[in-house]
Amino acid sequence: MALRSITRPLLYILLIAISLFYLMPVYVMLVTSLKPLDEITLAEMWKIPTSIDFSSYSVAFSKLAPNLMNSFYLVIPATILSALLGSLNGYVLSKWQFKGSNALFTAILFGMFIPYQSILIPLIQFLREIGLYNTIAGLVFVHVVYGLPITTLMFRNFYASIPVSMLESAKIDGAGFLGIFRHIMIPLSITGFVVVGIWQFTNIWNEFLFAVTITTSDQQPVMVALQNLSGSQIVQWNVQMAGALLAALPTLLVYIFLGKFFVRGLLAGSVKG
């Protein structure tokens, strides 16, 4: 216990120091984005701006606004669809197991670990073939398909905790496969939908490889547009940082308000439910 009284303050000092390190990028992002361009000399990167200048935000916003909208058009339907499919699959694989269903589940799970480079060339050929290349609908489709493993896993683990006795009594009352799903599983899995929804929202919003290879210019989601900002002639760091903040804002807000569910999703993807 004597040891504790010495180590305690040290513990807090260390935690605060590490926290400052973790927050440093946010600080630099904020101060840089609020400076006018001529104040952004490399030597003064750490200094607080002498006057607050929001012009970099208006520049960044005018450049990124269409892509921000693209991201919303992509993320909302893709999240809803993949959550619905995942819940159906999870329901079947946890409550209606059949011979070989566990092996099939493992085969599905493999899909969430593959490097997507290994399916990208045929995928693009396929999307061209069916006319969905360079469309947001195409990206929605891609994220629904490749979101299946993780959403199925999350819902399967979630549904495993619902006792079979509940299903049994519903069956006695005459409920079938769909009746049980609608009247028992869905009402009981609101949290599951929130966790999966937040997880998919964040991941699809942040995704880059599919976005950059499947869409061009005016169809591109915001992360590709952000990356393109830095590709232009002279790097305007203030606009760049303002853009990064704008692009990160939706997922950051989700994290700030629903962080608990985000962390649950994080663990659900890798730990048993």
Binding site: V28, M45, T202, L226, S230, M241, A248
Partner: peptide, 27 residues
């Protein structure tokens, strides 16, 4: 929350910010 929030960010955002932070002539 301080240790977890970067996970809610995109790798692209992280890349852009750290490119600036670790810019050899600065920061």
């Amino acid at each position: 929350n301080i240790f977890f929030f970067p996970m809610a960010l995109s790798f692209v955002v992280t890349g852009v910010v750290w490119q600036w932070l670790l810019n050899p002539s600065t920061g």
